[in-house]
């Protein structure tokens, strides 16, 4: 009897609405798989954008997003309701991006003649429109080490708090604070050639 109690999901004492992530997950666990589509529609854009900014590779967005949600579908019945669903979702997404980068790195070692990482190729005199600036910033972010890139994106692009980022990545808040600072310093360095126009 006590075991059954322990296995029951611990739902925070908040009022659950029909569209709340937790209530959707609970319904999914209870056997209503149709709610999964609702859950996907609620978060798909966050996941797709996070993948795009992290990898700076539009070709991989669809594949990795699908992998993320398939993984969510398989593991959702083990969700423990101890953190936000988004935090859990971000953690899965970040792990999938890391897996992909690892594969790319191995592939680049095995095939030394494959194209190397894109260089920041715009000259400062080229920076005329918004699209070019966007491209420069996107590439500059993509050049950051993944350790620094992820917290910076989660903070500045996704708007998560240090606490949420720490939970998603699985490190201390102090580490996140330090990594975000280092990421900004590195980004400034990457954008140095366009200092006059950008900073």
């Amino acid at each position: 009897m006590e075991k059954e109690k322990r296995d029951e999901p611990v739902i925070p004492q908040t009022i659950l609405t029909l569209n709340d992530d937790f209530s959707l997950i609970k319904r999914f666990i209870d056997g209503d798989e149709s709610v999964f589509k609702v859950l996907v529609n609620r978060h798909k854009e966050k996941v797709r954008n996070l993948i795009f900014v992290t990898l700076n590779n539009a070709d991989m967005i669809d594949d990795i997003s699908q992998e993320v949600f398939i993984s969510v579908f398989k593991k959702l019945d083990r969700f423990r309701f101890e953190s936000q669903f988004t935090t859990w979702l971000y953690r899965i997404t970040i792990n999938k991006c890391r897996d992909h980068l690892r594969k790319v790195k191995i592939r680049s070692i095995l095939s030394p003649f494959s194209a190397s990482e894109e260089e920041l190729s715009y000259s400062s005199s080229n920076l005329h429109d918004e699209t070019e600036i966007q491209e420069i910033v996107r590439k500059a972010v993509a050049q950051l080490p993944i350790k620094l890139r992820t917290p910076l994106i989660l903070k500045d692009f996704e708007g998560l708090s240090y606490q949420e980022i720490a939970e998603s990545i699985g490190v201390e808040v102090g580490t996140i604070k330090s990594r975000i600072f280092r990421a900004r310093e590195a980004l400034k360095k990457n954008l140095e050639p366009w200092k006059k126009e950008l900073l």
Partner: peptide, 20 residues
């Protein structure tokens, strides 16, 4: 500001259908 104002991808309406 530059990072936060990076443009978002256009919404993929059929993503959920393909995934399901």
């Amino acid at each position: 500001e530059y990072v936060s104002s990076l443009k978002r991808l256009p919404e993929d309406e059929y993503f959920a259908a393909r995934l399901i």
